[in-house]
Simulated scan of single mutants.
Amino acid sequence: MAKRMRQRQRSILPGFGLSLGFTIFYLGGIVIIPLGVLVLRAAGFGLGDLWALATHERTVAALQLSFGASLIAALVNLVFGVLIAWVLVRYEFPGKRFIDAMVDLPFALPTAVAGIALTTLYAQNGWIGSLLEPLGITVAFTPAGVVIALIFISLPFVVRTVQPVLADLDHELEEAAASLGASRWQTFRRVILPALTPSFMTGFALAFARSVGEYGSVIFIAGNIPYVSEIAPLLIVIRLEEFDYDAATAIALIILIISFAALFLINLIQAWTRRRYGHAI
């Protein structure tokens, strides 16, 4: 009897059936149905027409820029985001709370405002752009400007993902490694890195996904030059304004397929790291 009572412990949330039903209903209405409509719309095209729309030279250039810049931005933030999280967790210094609050600024700041601010800074007559111009480096209105904007808007995802995991990491593990003669690099590689790897992958996935769909902060600093600095979300808007709904749908479908495949691969890597290191994110 006691065993049966333990198995039927009272749950704060409703039962499994009701919770699962609400979950499926909510995800269906918010995620699955809109994406399903997009797929059904694209299914009305012939494969030849869909392939021609998806492989148009301008479309390919926009997709390459969007996904390439997103990958670069996510990798950059993976390095510097972890460094920022490490400093915020492991050190005490004047202004720490202010810096910690600044990390969340890209969450609260309207993306259009961020784009205008970055363009002002990195334009040829801007504070930073004027210093880079004598060196032959141009950021604004180039693919480099796209990367800068994506780094700005996706940084918090890495920091806020790694920071709590790092804060919960037991210092005694590092002390034990040091007492056994491990160097700082060996302690980081064999003790800290395995514990943080799942959160690394989560932060990278969130930063990458956020960057792929970014629009507001990019269009100001990119210059939107076809075949050069035109991102895929902007090209979708352009096709809609031209009433070319078929092309817009085809581009959106390609973004959906590539994004889903990338995130699925990242989730597989996350699952592998959990099994290997035995740490939950």
Score class of each variant (00 low, 15 high):
A2H: 12
K3C: 01
M5A: 14
M5P: 00
R6F: 09
R8V: 08
Q9C: 08
L13S: 12
P14L: 10
G15Q: 08
G17F: 14
L18Y: 11
L18R: 12
F22T: 14
G29M: 15
G29Y: 09
I30S: 12
V31F: 12
I33N: 03
L35Y: 11
G36C: 11
A42M: 07
W51Q: 12
A54F: 02
V60L: 15
A61L: 08
L63T: 10
Q64G: 15
Q64V: 13
L65N: 06
F67I: 13
A69G: 07
S70H: 02
L71Y: 00
I72L: 14
A74Y: 01
L75R: 02
V76E: 00
V76P: 03
N77Y: 04
F80K: 11
F80T: 10
I84N: 00
V87A: 10
Y91R: 14
Y91T: 11
G95D: 11
G95L: 09
R97M: 09
R97L: 09
A101E: 05
L105K: 05
L105A: 14
L105Y: 04
A108W: 01
L109A: 14
T111Q: 08
V113Q: 00
V113S: 04
G115F: 07
G115W: 02
I116N: 03
A117E: 08
A117G: 11
T119E: 01
T120Y: 11
Y122A: 01
A123P: 01
L131Q: 15
L135Q: 13
F141K: 06
P143H: 01
G145Y: 02
V147D: 02
I148P: 08
A149D: 11
L150F: 07
F152Q: 05
S154F: 00
F157A: 08
V158A: 06
L166G: 07
L166H: 06
A167L: 11
H171L: 10
H171C: 01
H171D: 14
L173S: 00
L173Y: 14
E174V: 08
E175H: 03
A177W: 00
A178Q: 14
A178K: 13
L180T: 14
A182S: 13
Q186T: 13
R189C: 05
V191T: 08
L196A: 01
S199A: 15
S199F: 07
F200H: 01
T202G: 10
A207M: 06
A207W: 02
S211W: 04
V212D: 03
V212E: 07
G213N: 08
G213Y: 08
E214S: 07
Y215E: 01
Y215T: 13
G216H: 04
V218S: 03
I219F: 05
F220K: 01
F220T: 04
G223L: 02
Y227F: 13
Y227I: 00
V228Q: 06
A232M: 10
P233R: 00
P233A: 04
L235I: 03
I236F: 01
V237F: 15
I238M: 10
R239E: 12
L240K: 05
E241H: 11
F243T: 13
T249Q: 07
T249D: 06
I251P: 09
A252S: 15
L253H: 00
I255M: 15
I255K: 00
L256H: 06
I257P: 03
I258P: 06
F260N: 08
A262W: 03
A262V: 14
L263A: 05
L268E: 04
I269M: 11
W272D: 10
T273P: 02
T273M: 10
R274N: 06
R275T: 12
H279R: 13
I281D: 02
